[in-house]
Design a protein around this nucleic acid. Structure first.
Lengths: 241, 241
DNA sequence: CGTTAATTTGAGACCATTCAATTTCGGTGG
DNA sequence: CCACCGAAATTGAATGGTCTCAAATTAACG
């Protein structure tokens, strides 16, 4: 059943967070939702918006960002399928940042009331949901460290390590080759660098024999080297309970 | 009753997040906890530690931080009384960062099981707790923006604006003068700058007539100017429901 | 009142930015 | 299927914000 229902992949991921019973799964599957497809760069959520729903990413990639007065942009996180892009909106009524589609995205949009009801009735589901938001927060903290205290090479390497580990979870292609439709400008906005310097930094990572980045695919040539370069420790991803 | 119980101030703050009934308040007050006092720079939580409890700050200031391989430090947030410093540990079993005492701190330490039980039995309390963690996360996001995309002057000004607004909540002394025991080195570690450059930036803010920072007190001379300099918009603090 | 921590100052070096121009790539229509 | 187009990636050179290192001054505390 988890294979045919659109929220099946969400349930599979949540099952690693908490012990979901048959009834729990049933309850998730009976959540009301509408599906919606977003085109390249489309906004899924806008800062300042009063929110009444949350979105699960079913297909494609998305990212959160804030725009500054001077027009610059800071990307705050990337999101892959099965993840909520705005679960905090189930309890905070005004969106404090934008969520944008990376390339193309397919979402299930769930009314917040349905989520808070579910969270009240199903303790195991509540724990899974809550853990989702807590892991999000842990990733934000690591990003503060990344942009605050690492040099450009380590920043990019660290970001790549994170994305790779998370992409592995959703079974992205053959070993060590990843579908990677993120532009250098987006990498720059995620690491607090400029696109020009990001380009030079990527070249340096290539020269070091750590990665191969062509077209829309990323190949990891030396995982340990990349991890080392990025000062990367996956503890903050809380991937094992 | 909220005045004499150690957790009274926590309940008062939570009452702004959710509608707490008399029974809800009762339930919070019957939480088991131990009190503990921490000295200057003492660790309240250590990265990597298996956690079985959460701490509410009753008196003093604390901050979260991560240490990097090269010995540098990134401060991730500051905390003021009535706030949990590690509520995420109620569901994540391994601490992903350190929590350290700023000067002196007095905490109420609550077993995680008691918190998850309470959260299961008392929906209004659950909402208040969950909102706490979600607002934490919102602040982390803004910090990513701050260190990622603002120049030194705006970074420091933004941080000061945030601290001032949050300190106002706990009624910190006379209008526009704040008890401020944060060293320049700590400000530097929070903004991703060096202590030397933080010093020069603070001088520049003083020269602009925005603040007065002497001894252990901060005086705001021009709030609108400081807000402007810091590109500050308090939406992310979600202070009104 | 001595001793240590915190703040302040100066000068030089460097990492990352800025601004432009060029090349490559991906998608599209003739 | 190729020519074209705009987006993305790449390169160069000059500028600048922030860092580093060291030393001097001031403030905090027992």
């Amino acid at each position: 059943m988890t294979d045919v229902h659109p929220l099946g992949s969400l349930v599979r991921r949540w099952s690693k967070h908490a012990n979901l019973s048959g009834d729990d799964v049933e309850a998730v599957f009976s959540l009301p939702f509408t599906r919606r497809t977003f085109g390249k760069d489309a906004y899924i959520v806008r800062e300042g918006q009063i929110t009444a729903e949350c979105s699960v990413l079913l297909r494609g990639l998305a990212f959160r960002q804030k725009l500054l007065r001077d027009g610059s942009r800071q990307i705050i996180s990337f999101h892959i399928p099965t993840e909520f892009v705005d679960l905090q909106n189930s309890l905070l009524s005004v969106a404090d940042h934008n969520v944008q589609c990376l390339y193309r995205a397919d979402c299930a949009i769930i009314p917040r009331q349905a989520l808070t009801d579910l969270s009240g009735k199903r303790p195991a589901v509540r724990i899974a949901m809550w853990r989702d938001t807590l892991i999000d927060a842990s990733i934000f903290r690591e990003w503060v460290v990344n942009v605050g205290r690492r040099d450009s090479k380590a920043r990019i390497a660290h970001l790549l390590c994170e994305l790779i580990l998370r992409l592995q979870k959703v079974g992205n292609g053959p070993e060590e080759i990843y579908d990677f439709p993120i532009t250098q400008e987006q990498l720059a906005d995620a690491t607090g660098l400029t696109a020009v310097h990001t380009n030079r930094t990527l070249q340096s990572l290539r020269k070091d024999g750590l990665i191969q980045l062509t077209a829309k695919s990323l190949t990891v040539l030396d995982w340990e080297g990349l991890r080392e370069a990025g000062d990367f420790d996956e503890l903050y991803l809380h991937q094992q309970i």
